[in-house]
Write a protein that binds this DNA or RNA. Structure first.
Lengths: 194, 194
DNA sequence: GTTTAAGCGGACGAATTCGTCCGCAACGAC
DNA sequence: GTCGTTGCGGACGAATTCGTCCGCTTAAAC
């Protein structure tokens, strides 16, 4: 029944990775409409190879997004498994996102959000892990009770791309993390009227 | 000496605005490489008209960015002029950014940050107004002392573009504002180790 | 080594996008 | 109204990008 159709050749796997890496870099730098030929060249392969591995631009972009959610899922699960206080886990998740930012290609920019079923599963997995983490913190009285995974995801996505041309994105991003962590406590955010 | 070369015709001004509005919408939706012809069509003008007003794509993008900083400058100055506590002014700045988000086209996405000298002036103006606001809050003991305008700008830029495909970006964004405001107090952010 | 099928690369025609140019339309001064 | 000038629109050739196709290369099974 299971006719194993033979594993792909070694160079094929290697080239697939090269294409993904090159595409990640160029899509982040030049946007999702960067010419396919540019991606192929930067990867050191011919366009034929590129199109063989990813028949359309959509498919390539989908693979980038899928890969990104794989990284995010790893980070979210690691954070949830963190033995210390939930706040430390959340901080770890943010810092991991910042660390991995150059590998993320997320549909942040109005591009066609290319989500396969498998990607959606990973996305749901991220939510689940973060929800678990938040519940632990809420139960322990460490966190305000109304937080949702989306709150963390939005904040994290801010970190994944330098928004200012200043050189020190790392510094700015870390400060944003600290500022945000101050608002997560059980007393809720400062009351402000006006 | 001053040979006033005659003001532009009424239809020219109207068409210029139409192009800017159309470009704002399409660049936000499809990215900065959206075809010029698409912008012209969406604006209801011919490509000739588009290229007459903006000789190159760069020039058009530059105008969009310039316009965006004009809005941001108005908002920053209004916030600085706010009579109440500084925290309320900051909140007002964030909410105004959220309100105006569809009019912002900022060089957030690796695109060629098209900054003219005039744009840089507006940008500096935003910084100045926000610095003033922060100093007022710090002097009053309302805010931690180490905040910079960039901290506010980064946070505000997060609001200017929906990052998640969920429908309720407004709700998520408002919550981010509240969370962040909790970290601005003089006691500094919660201490977290791990 | 030999063999064979998977994989590679880049030339090429099709399709898209660019940016100019010029005959026609309409604003506004009189 | 008339007239001069500014501004409009879109057709068009040039340039870029797309995606396929096929002869050559190379991994890997024996």
């Amino acid at each position: 029944m299971s006719d194993t159709p033979r594993p792909p050749r070694r160079d094929a796997l290697r080239n697939r990775e090269r294409v993904l890496d090159a595409a990640t870099e160029l899509v982040r730098r030049d946007g999702e409409k960067v010419p396919m030929a540019a991606i192929a060249e930067h990867a050191g392969v011919g366009v034929g190879t590129l199109y063989r591995h990813f028949a359309t631009r959509e498919e390539l972009l989908g693979a980038l997004v899928h890969r990104s959610f794989g990284i995010a899922l790893d980070n979210a699960r690691a954070a949830a498994a963190h033995p210390g206080p939930a706040l430390a886990g959340i901080r770890g998740f943010f810092l991991a996102t910042l660390r991995d930012r150059e590998r993320f290609v997320l549909p942040l920019h109005g591009g066609p959000a290319v989500f396969t079923a498998a990607t959606r599963e990973r996305q749901a997995g991220v939510r689940t892990a973060l929800r678990e983490l938040l519940e632990r913190g809420t139960t322990a009285g460490e966190l305000r009770a109304d937080l949702t995974p989306e709150d963390l995801i939005v904040a994290a996505s801010l970190l994944s791309r330098p928004l200012l041309p200043t050189g020190d994105w790392d510094g700015l991003a870390r400060r944003q993390i600290d500022l945000l962590l101050g608002g997560l406590g059980p007393e809720g955010p400062a009351e402000v009227t006006g």
